[in-house]
């Protein structure tokens, strides 16, 4: 478990470094959008802030965020003893998740350099990656949670263990109460 939390800390430090980079990097503009020319209740994008360095820093922010998401999932199911299979499945999920995000990013880089309007299931390609890939991929983890629940989350005998812990706690509390009352009576 200690190693897991050292990895956790390293990811957090990486995120801090990326954020610091974003704050100190020289940029044409830190403004992200401007009011629409014709419709004041709408905003339009501002190209000045879209330097390549900032996009790459943002990409790494996304990658480290996904690493942290999957680490959280792993912490939730890791349990007392190390279980290689759990780690392998979660790391596989992480690789695919980061892969989808990277393909989406590559598609976006192409999108901003190309004027053509290509769509997939109703949206431009990078938006489709975001919606159908990044949004839906976590269903893989949901599937894992449902299918492996009895093995990885709560084994059938765990609930009996809980009941015996609660029972012994209640008995101890009763005993302590009894001892207190006896002491009071003695006083």
């Amino acid at each position: 478990m200690r190693k897991t939390f050292i990895v956790f800390l390293l990811i957090l430090i990486s995120l801090i470094l990326v954020l610091t980079g974003l704050i100190i990097v020289p940029a044409n503009s830190i403004r992200v959008h401007a009011q629409h020319d014709l419709f004041p209740t709408m905003l339009k994008s501002d190209d000045a802030s879209q330097s390549e360095l900032i996009l790459w820093l943002a990409f790494f922010f996304g990658v480290f965020s996904i690493c942290l998401f999957t680490l959280f999932l792993y912490i939730g199911i890791s349990g007392k003893n190390f279980h290689r299979k759990k780690l392998v499945v979660i790391v596989t999920g992480l690789i695919v998740y980061v892969g989808i995000f990277s393909f989406g990013f590559a598609s976006y880089l192409e999108y901003i350099q190309n004027d053509s309007f290509r769509v997939f299931l109703g949206f431009p390609a990078p938006t489709a990656w975001m919606l159908y890939g990044i949004w839906f991929f976590p269903l893989f983890f949901t599937f894992l949670y449902v299918v492996k629940f009895n093995d990885w989350v709560l084994k059938p005998d765990d609930y009996q263990r809980l009941q015996s812990i609660i029972k012994s706690r209640e008995q101890r509390t009763k005993r302590r109460k009894g001892e207190k009352e006896k002491r009071r009576e003695g006083d």
């Binding site: 992200v32 994008s45 996009l55 949206f123 431009p124 990656w129």
Partner: peptide, 28 residues
């Protein structure tokens, strides 16, 4: 949906791109 996307794309391609007008950093 394709037509909706195209209308928005023709006005501001970023608005229907993955990050909208806010940009990649804010969205992430």
């Amino acid at each position: 949906l394709v037509s909706i996307s195209q209308t928005i794309f023709e006005d501001d391609r970023e608005a229907i791109g993955p990050w909208g007008t806010l940009g990649m950093v804010g969205c992430l």
